Amino acid sequence: MSTNSDKNKRAVVILSGGLDSTTCMGIAKEAGYDLYPISFDYGQRHKIEIENAKQVAEHYGVSQRHKIIKLDFLRDFGGSALTDDTIDVPNVMNGEAEESEIPVTYVPGRNLLFLSIATSYAEVTGSVAIYIGVNALDYSGYPDCRPEFIHKVEEVIALATKVGVEGKGITIETPLIDWTKAKIIEEGLKIGVPYELTTSCYNGKAEACGVCDSCRLRLKGFEEAGSKDPIPYL
């Protein structure tokens, strides 16, 4: 997971339209990469984030390179509060969130699938890096946000791709992996990340709910960063 700042190199950015992935987009831009964003429509409850991702791609002037991939089978599988309407999103105001367990908002296999497809896009575009906004601190319950997972996927990429076999390789960049939400926001504000174009709410409405786990972490992060969240809340 090296940090490659060489100019005129390309990077795929897994862009959800949320705070973390948009910060990754800004960081990759600051590092001098040409950006190739990729987003996933996997039947998520908060599908509105796809529209946010489009706006972010437009902000960075790379709409023409922005790929949106449909993965409808994740909703068919269910098993997550984000893809299964029979499972409620935890409301922290009612004490429903359980931080000691893997959250019900974990989507089985999501980041494994995202990174596999992003690898394909990286090979085709000649990208040398994939940026993903995984965070092992705030989302420590998600097994596919851990450094161990990222390292193993990098090993697989080296074995399973043409560029890997040829010794060129593709790195997975995870600049946010051990940052607090406040630090993510602080660093993002320094480089002009357009947080007003992002969404984090799991409920997928035009106005964020402010009480789901994702909203709670976002609001806490802005408060600790000494800044006001620019998006509307109910």
Rank of each mutant, 00 (worst) to 15 (best):
I172N: 00
A81D: 03
E99N: 05
V163C: 06
C215L: 06
L137K: 11
R75M: 04
I117G: 06
L35M: 06
A160F: 00
E148P: 05
L19A: 08
Y139A: 10
A158C: 09
R10L: 02
D41C: 00
G79A: 06
E166Y: 07
E96D: 12
F73P: 01
D34E: 12
V163D: 02
G226Y: 07
S200G: 03
N8R: 12
Q44T: 00
I48G: 00
S2V: 07
D84A: 12
A129P: 02
S21L: 15
N4W: 04
P103T: 05
L74A: 11
G164C: 06
Q64T: 11
S214D: 11
T119P: 06
C201K: 01
C209P: 15
D20T: 09
A206P: 02
K7G: 12
V211R: 13
E99K: 05
A11Q: 09
P194Q: 13
K70N: 15
H59Y: 15
P90H: 10
V134A: 03
N135Q: 08
E148Q: 14
L74K: 05
E173T: 10
P147G: 06
N52F: 10
N111P: 00
A81C: 08
I130E: 06
T3C: 01
E223F: 09
A31N: 13
P147W: 03
D41E: 11
L15H: 13
Q64Y: 12
T105D: 07
E154L: 05
I14L: 15
C209T: 13
Q44I: 03
G141L: 02
V89L: 05
N8W: 12
G126F: 00
I150M: 13
K47W: 05
N94A: 13
L234V: 13
L112N: 10
S21G: 14
I170Q: 00
N91K: 08
R110G: 02
Y131Q: 07
K168I: 11
R110Y: 10
I50W: 13
Y36M: 08
E166T: 04
V107P: 08
A97K: 10
A208M: 08
L137C: 00
D144Q: 01
A122P: 06
E96V: 01
I231Q: 03
A160N: 07
S16R: 07
Y233N: 00
A31P: 03
R65Y: 13
L82M: 14
A160H: 00
Y106V: 09
Y106Q: 12
K162P: 01
G43R: 01
L219S: 02
A129I: 04
K190Y: 05
K70Q: 15
S2N: 08
E51L: 09
H151E: 15
Y233M: 09
I132D: 02
I68A: 04
L234N: 04
A57D: 12
E101K: 15
